[in-house]
Amino acid sequence: MGGVDVDPAWPSIALTVNGRRHEVSVPADRRLAGLLRDDLGLTGTKLGCEVGVCGTCTVLVDGLPTSSCLTLAVQVDGASVLTVEGLAAFPELAELGRAFVEEGGFQCGFCTSGQLVAIAGLMLEQRLSSMTSEAVTEHLHGNLCRCTGYYGIQRAIDRARR
């Protein structure tokens, strides 16, 4: 499904964000990150490098981890997007948030939304507990953190895996 492209410069799109349906018209060059932050006010998704490397802008699109800085809003027409603000709706993720707090999974918190979404993607598909720790690490290669050295994130994941 998708909106009708009446105006190719300003296409209409329909998408679900954190369970809520939105129908919006956006400039064709609006990035998904811009749609979420500026149009929908969901500022939990951060913008860092804008070249797909740092992962601060990570969201799930139909369950797939996505750099919202490298994705056009029109591209996700018809899709279902989950951002950090939507994670609270999943009780099975509560332990992950707690573990991040208690294990030192963040310091400045700028990368945290992206880290949580990337890990939540695995948990919601029930893959986390069956993956090797190397595979989990590989999954997070693209979520940089400049503050924690990753050890606290690793401990938080280890707790969430149990």
Binding site: G52, G55, L64, T66, S67, L70, T71, G142
Partner: peptide, 9 residues
């Protein structure tokens, strides 16, 4: 290839 987000898209 790249990272998991690159591979997804």
């Amino acid at each position: 290839i790249g990272n998991v987000r690159v591979r997804s898209w």
